[in-house]
């Protein structure tokens, strides 16, 4: 069986921080029929720029969409991120309260499997 990390590709983008950018970026994924697993968007060290980090489950398709993302005017940089730089976040909750964790994608998916939280959200970032 494929391990979790074999099935994850992470794309990192530096984009102009303007209205409509997310719609345009997501439009490329819609058109190429790629389901996006996780999204992290936020301000970054450069003024008027933002970073978008996405994870998808198909590394081949991820590679194919990169060139299309680079064609977008507001996308300054787009690259797939090497596995060693992946960072996973987990926020989970059960009857006793909340917990937040960071770790590798694999570690956190093991945590989810073992602890079976009542509610959780998990995402992937990278630098």
């Amino acid at each position: 069986m494929k391990s979790v990390r074999d099935m994850v590709a992470v794309i990192s983008m530096l984009v102009d921080d303007e209205p409509g950018v997310m719609q345009r970026v997501m439009g490329e994924f819609t058109r190429k029929r790629i389901n996006v697993e996780t999204i992290v968007v936020g301000k970054c060290e450069k003024p008027d720029k933002a970073r978008i980090v996405l994870s998808v489950t198909d590394p081949v398709k991820a590679q194919a969409v990169i060139e299309h993302l680079r064609m977008l005017q507001e996308v300054n940089e787009a690259e797939t991120v090497d596995e060693s730089r992946h960072e996973s976040y987990l926020l989970m909750m059960n009857d006793f309260g909340k917990a937040r964790m960071t770790g590798s994608i694999e570690e956190l998916s093991n945590v989810i499997e073992k602890s079976q939280p009542k509610k959780y959200i998990s995402t992937v970032s990278a630098l």
Partner: peptide, 14 residues
């Protein structure tokens, strides 16, 4: 119009 034109233009502005 901004949303409608987005996927059929090279780029668009509002």
């Amino acid at each position: 119009s901004f949303g409608i034109m987005m996927p059929i233009t090279k780029h668009n502005f509002r």
